[in-house]
Amino acid sequence: MVWYVLLVAAVGAERLVELVIAERNRRWSRARGGTEFGSRHYPVMVVLHTALLAGCVFEVVALHRPFLPAVGFPMLALVVAAQVLRWWCITTLGRQWNTRVIVIPGAARISGGPYRVIPHPNYVAVIVEGFALPLVHGAWITAAVFTVLNAALLKTRLEVENTALARLR
C-alpha cells in the first residue's frame, strides 16, 4: 500500500508542477491580451481533482482495499499512458497550454500533436486517470464518484472551451 500512496503523491506532485507551468503561461497570455473564459467553474475543478487524490488514499486506507494484480497492473499502465498523453498535450500547446481557458487574440489554434487526432486530448487523459488511478488499488467508490462528477464538470468545461476556441483562427 505504501507504493500506492507514493504513486498518488507523485501524481499530486505532477499536478503542482502543472500549476506552476499554468501560472507562468497565464501571465504570458495575459501580457499578450489573453482573455480568460469560464473562471467560475475553475475552483470546482481544483476541488474535484484534489478530492480525487485524497479519495484514492482515503478509500484504500480506510476501507482496506486490496491490491488485485489483474486489475491493478492494467490500471497502472493506463495511469502512465494518461500522463504521457497529458504531457504530449502540454508540450504541443507550449505557452498556450493552461489549466484555465485563456484565449490570446489573433493566436492560431493548435492542430498538431494529439490535437490532429482528437479535439480535446487532455480531457481524455483526465477521464482515463480519473478512473484508472483509483482502480490501481481497488478504490472503486472514488473512481465512480469522480467519473460522474467529472462528466458533469467536463460538460461545462467543453462548452466554455469550445466557445472560447471558436475565437481563434
Rank of each mutant, 00 (worst) to 15 (best):
H64W: 10
R26Q: 07
E18H: 07
F73K: 15
F73N: 13
L85A: 06
L16I: 05
R40I: 10
C89L: 10
V84R: 13
V11T: 04
R15T: 01
V61N: 03
A22V: 01
V46E: 13
Q83R: 07
Y42E: 08
R65K: 11
V44R: 12
A54G: 12
H64S: 13
A13G: 13
H64C: 07
G12L: 06
V11Q: 05
E23P: 01
Y42W: 14
I21R: 00
L48D: 05
R65F: 04
V17D: 03
E36T: 10
V71H: 03
L19H: 04
V46D: 08
V79I: 06
E18F: 04
L68R: 15
V84I: 15
E59D: 01
A62K: 03
G38C: 15
A62T: 00
E18D: 07
W28C: 07
C89A: 08
V17Y: 05
V61C: 11
R65Q: 11
E23R: 09
A13D: 02
F58D: 09
L68T: 15
E18L: 07
G38S: 14
W87A: 08
C56R: 07
R32H: 13
A54E: 02
R26D: 05
H64M: 09
W88D: 08
M75Y: 08
Y42H: 14
R15Q: 03
A31I: 08
V61Q: 12
F58H: 12
L53I: 02
A31P: 04
W88G: 04
L53V: 02
C56I: 06
V79W: 05
V84K: 14
A13P: 01
A31N: 08
S39P: 03
A81G: 09
L85C: 06
L53S: 03
V17Q: 04
R65C: 09
G55W: 07
A13C: 12
V46K: 14
L53G: 02
R15V: 01
W88T: 05
R26K: 15
L63F: 12
